[in-house]
Structures are given as structure tokens and as C-alpha cells.
Design a protein around this nucleic acid. Structure first.
Lengths: 336, 336
DNA sequence: TTGTAGGCGTTATCAC
DNA sequence: GTGATAACGCCTACAA
């Protein structure tokens, strides 16, 4: 493995000049710069991360903290964060925290061996003040994706109420007036806006809010199954259900099938996330696609430059067979 | 951040003694060792990875190369490899390669900035000799998960024929004689054994092999849709379909629904992988669970010690509503 | 614009 | 058993 000195020798310059070229500093003569670049290519030189880390007292690593549940959103986030980091010459190390219910091993999990320069914290941990304080105490700059509570760290704001309104408006436009909601587990998280949007859309359409039609789930398949079972047993059952995640929507769908309801004729179903799953159930799910890669880019930028960029994210309403009756398979390859 | 010298000063020993304690070398007196351990705890000292990397000329990092498609298998593999590495004091960096069809950017993708000490290569790349040679040329030790072709690197052998036989036997025991197969895309990969097992089980039961009933898919949902469409149009249609992945099985299932076939009454369906998806479609899929974490552990061991451990892996047949008629939701939380 | 000295926190080598 | 001393490859000063 060639070192900076090998390059310097071959190019006939001091190693500091090579370092300047490598780091893109402007103060290098054109001819020297070219000689150095040729030598670098010749030798296939790549700077040693370890040496840079040691000398610069920076790791060039961004930590990413995600839950172990909810694969598709995580996978998308991991991939998006990784590629955003790479563009900036950084690496990612992902810390996957077991999250079952509310019982997870907080700050202790976070003794990153790699000593990241900053950490990006995804939901739901981005709203756990104790957990975040533990990170802050380690002196780590923190970026919270979709943070809503009062806690240490920069926040990448994500607002889901407007798109949720549009989704419910879509259901209302189809003629539904009894619309159930499988809501997010806890009020203290960004996803609560999905419920807020639901209520706003109903109100705007002059439909009374019926608390019996709102049941909180746990973002898992099982939560959807349970919630819809309960709803369908009501004297005035819903004719449409909006689940706050695709996993829960899949539970709603499966249970509807099991109970013999036809979708969307007897019961319309909509989800949230546009997980791969959404296209693989039958009928495919109407849902909302999150701008994950934009969010990831903003988070990485904030992590590296200690400043949240000013951007607004564009969610997308995706209408499929589970609501509008146009029963086609979605055969596109899933784009992360 | 305390250094080894801070610890040494506090403990009143030379920093080399501290290093000996940290690295678990036996040649340290009992009293000194305890003094050092106390000092380490006192200061919350953790050795700097960067410095170790630089001095030892090792990165303590294992590279993992996975395709971008097929989320659940990847996610499980990533998590399993990461935790196996952590147990050994190593880190992982995952390189996700875009793989659509056969057109991926091979060796170029692999200039790991982190200079891993070894790389673990998952399917399908583990059977691409050119690709692997590119890695080998970089001087990287290679571990191939489920490698079957002749190529550089150690191989973690995975055999899927026996469990495939059991799966098809299960279908035969239910009375099926016309059993279709949505086969893996290419013969040159470990998953081909799924087809081999299919044929072996049919032969053992005295059922003639009908090439019309075997259609190769691409491991994606769309492949399952296409394959089953073709099969169901045959003069003598199958009454059961074994798809070589859960994604394809989901395609089979969705298309069966769309065409009005009842599952499993009109058509039984089975998959492979036990992806989260398998429990979220209706009816839930009969499938095969891969021992991913055992495989990952073996691979990590091989990567670190340059030697493949002698282990055999235990696949598991999981029977659900898509074949046996016991139509229950599987509500367990997915265990990676 | 270019080059030199010193140090970052470990491991490895060799004395004691 | 224990402890100096020299690397490891690069960056940050400062000097020329």
C-alpha cells in the first residue's frame, strides 16, 4: 500500500505538497499539481483513513442510530445516509438498537467503538430526551430526524400533516364518511401528524370525529390486525381505514381478507411509507412515499457542518388498488 | 478523551503495561494489572481504533458486500454480520451494490475507503469470478457465502437441496401432483439447489418432471407474477407452486388473487427465506427459514482467522396458511 | 507557493 | 515481568 511519501518521491516534491493536492487546497502550482496527480494515479495511492483520523483528531465517521424494527424505512435510511456520507468523504457506522415496546437499552448501546464525529438519530429514539442526553454527555453533536420533543441536538423537521390530509381527502372523495385510523403508538413523535392530518381532513369535510374509529397501533403488522378487528365489530363499521404505516395497513388488509371483506369494495385501506411490502400485497396499497433520501442528505449535511440546511421535503401520495379500484400490480423495481 | 498514557500515569506504571492489560497479555503481575484496571474504569478509557489501526497495520474492519435488492435477506445478513463482528472486536462496513439484472459496476465499486482486513461477499456476487478476482487483486482475503463456482476466496458452503426436498414433500403429502416451480434466475448459484431439491422430491415420489411447470424468475415480485400467469394458462395447470423466494411467492399469491384463485384451496403456494413479508400477506406463506446468523458467524470467523470453521447449518421448514389450510395470522415480532 | 519539525495514540522491538 | 524507543501515515503549525 503506497504512502504519501512514495507519491512525493515519485513526483519529486515534498510530501506536504502531495497532501495539499489530496485535500484540494488551492495553494499549489499547476504543474506540480499535475505531476502529483499523475503519481497518485500511477501508484493507486489512497490516503490512510486511520492516519488522517489520528492526526486530525477527527474520525470522518457519522454514526447512525436506528431501531431494529420496521425494516424498509430503516433500510432506505441506511442506504441514503451512507451514500450521502460517501459524497462528502465520510463513512457511516450504523448502530441498530433493539426496540420492542419501550424497553431498550439506551445510552449504553452507544459506546461507538468508532468514535463518530456526530450522530444521526432516527425515530423513535430522536424523541427520547434521556437517551439523547446520554449522547450529548459523550460530547457528540446530534442530529435528530423528525424530532418534535425538547431535547439536545439539531432537528431535521419533517411534517406529515399536509400529506396525511391529502390522503384522507382522497378517501373522502371516494365517498367514504366512516373512516377508521390505526394511529401511531404515542403522541410524542413526528408521526403523530398523521393523526393530526386525519382529524383536519375530516373536520374540513364536515365529518364528525368519532374516537371509536381511532385505535393506536404499534407500527407492526399485528397492530393492524387487532385494530381492524375491533373496528369492524363496531355497530357502524368503517368503510375505509387509514393505517399510519404500511406494516399496519398490511395487517388491516390481511384481517379483512380473513374475515371475508373485499378490498376495496367492502373496505378501502391506505398505509404510509411506501414500503416494498405495499406493492406486494393484494391489492397493492395506496400509501405515502417519504422523501427519505432528501431527509438523509439534510441530516448528513447537518452532522458534518453543524448546521441544518434550509430545505423542505416533498411527500408523495401514491394511489393503488387498495382504495381506487384500479386493480393493477405495481411491477416496478423498488427504488430505495 | 483519555489516552493510554493518562491511564499509565494514574496507575503509576508505564503505558506499555497498560497496553498489555488492555490486550489481555498474560505477562503482567496481578497487583499491577488490578491497578491498571481500576485506572481504566476511573477514566472511562477506551483505546483509539485509529491509533491501533495505524500502529498494527490492520483496520479491524470486515467489509461486507451485498446486493441492493432483496431487502430482508440483506437486512438480516447485515445485522447478523455486524453483531458477529462486534463480538470479536471488529467493525463492519457494508458496501451495497446496485444489482439490476446482470449489470453492475464490479470491482470499481469496491475501493473501500476503510481498507477492510477481509471481505465477506454475499450472493449473487460470491459467484462472479471476475468480480472476485478484482477483489483478490487488491490483496483482500475473501469469504464467499454460499459460493459454488470456481473463484478466489474461502467458501462458506450452504446447501439448500435437502430442505427444498422436504418442502416439496410437504406439498406432495397434501395430495398435489402438478407442482410448479418459480426457479432461481441462473444455474450458477447456490440457490440452484432449490430446483435440484424440487426435482429430487418429485422423482422420489414417482412424479414425472414437466419442464412446462418450471419457469425461472428474477427473485423479484414481478417474476412470480409473470411465472404464475404463464403456468395457470397451461392446459393442465399446477395446483401448487413453489417459488424460490418469498418475494416471488408473493407475486404468485397476488396474481392468484387477482385471477380469482383461492389460496390454498385452488392453488397452494410456498416460498423461501421467511422474509417479514411472508407473514404479512394473506394467507401467510409456507416457507423456509435460513440460518442467517449462523452463516454470518461462520463467515466472520473465516474472515478474521483465515479459516473456515466446520459447521453445518440447519434450515427450517415453516408451514403456514398458504399450503395447509390452517389460516392463522403469524403475529410474532420478526426476529432477525 | 513550497518545505520542515513535531505530534496524534497505539503496537512492536528490544533492552533491563 | 516491566519499560524505554522507534515506527505507523498523516495533519497542523511554522518557516523559508
Amino acid at each position: 500500500m503506497p504512502t504519501i511519501k512514495d507519491v512525493a518521491k515519485l513526483a519529486g516534491v515534498s510530501f506536504k505538497t502531495v497532501a495539499r493536492v489530496v485535500n484540494g487546497e488551492p495553494s499549489v502550482g499547476k504543474d506540480l499539481r499535475e505531476r502529483v496527480e499523475v503519481a497518485i494515479r500511477e501508484l493507486g495511492y489512497r490516503p490512510s483513513l486511520a492516519a488522517r483520523q489520528l492526526a486530525a483528531q477527527k474520525s470522518f465517521i457519522i454514526g447512525l442510530i436506528v431501531p431494529r424494527a420496521g425494516i424498509s424505512y430503516i433500510a432506505r435510511m441506511m442506504i441514503a445516509v451512507a451514500s450521502a456520507c460517501r459524497e462528502q468523504g465520510y463513512q457511516v457506522t450504523t448502530e441498530t438498537i433493539d426496540w420492542r415496546g419501550d424497553n431498550y437499552n439506551a445510552a449504553e448501546s452507544l459506546r461507538f467503538a468508532s468514535r463518530p464525529d456526530a450522530v444521526i438519530v432516527a425515530p423513535p429514539f430522536c424523541n427520547d430526551a434521556v437517551f439523547l442526553q446520554g449522547l450529548a454527555d459523550q460530547g457528540l453533536p446530534i442530529v435528530r430526524i423528525a424530532g418534535v420533543t425538547d431535547a439536545p441536538g439539531m432537528v431535521i423537521p419533517v411534517h406529515e400533516a399536509p400529506i396525511s390530509i391529502r390522503l384522507v381527502e382522497h378517501l373522502i372523495a371516494l365517498g367514504h364518511t366512516r373512516i377508521g385510523m390505526v394511529a401511531p403508538p404515542l403522541p410524542i413523535r413526528a408521526s403523530e401528524e398523521r393523526l393530526v392530518g386525519y382529524r383536519a381532513a375530516l373536520a374540513a369535510a364536515g365529518i364528525a370525529y368519532d374516537p371509536d374509529l381511532v385505535i393506536r397501533g404499534d407500527f407492526n403488522f399485528a397492530g393492524g390486525v387487532r385494530a381492524v378487528t375491533e373496528m369492524l365489530a363496531l355497530p357502524q363499521r368503517p368503510t375505509a381505514v387509514f393505517a399510519a404505516s404500511d406494516d399496519m395497513a398490511a395487517g388491516v388488509l390481511a384481517q379483512a381478507h380473513k374475515l371475508g371483506f373485499r378490498v376495496p369494495d367492502d373496505l378501502a385501506v391506505a398505509g404510509f411509507d411506501d414500503a416494498p411490502l405495499a406493492r406486494m400485497v393484494w391489492p397493492p396499497l395506496t400509501t405515502v412515499r417519504q422523501p427519505v433520501s432528501q431527509i438523509a442528505q439534510a441530516a448528513v449535511h447537518a452532522a458534518i457542518h453543524q448546521r441544518v440546511p434550509e430545505v423542505s421535503f416533498q411527500h408523495e401520495l401514491i394511489i393503488r388498488g387498495s382504495t381506487n379500484g384500479d386493480r393493477q400490480h405495481c411491477l416496478d423495481i423498488y427504488a430505495f
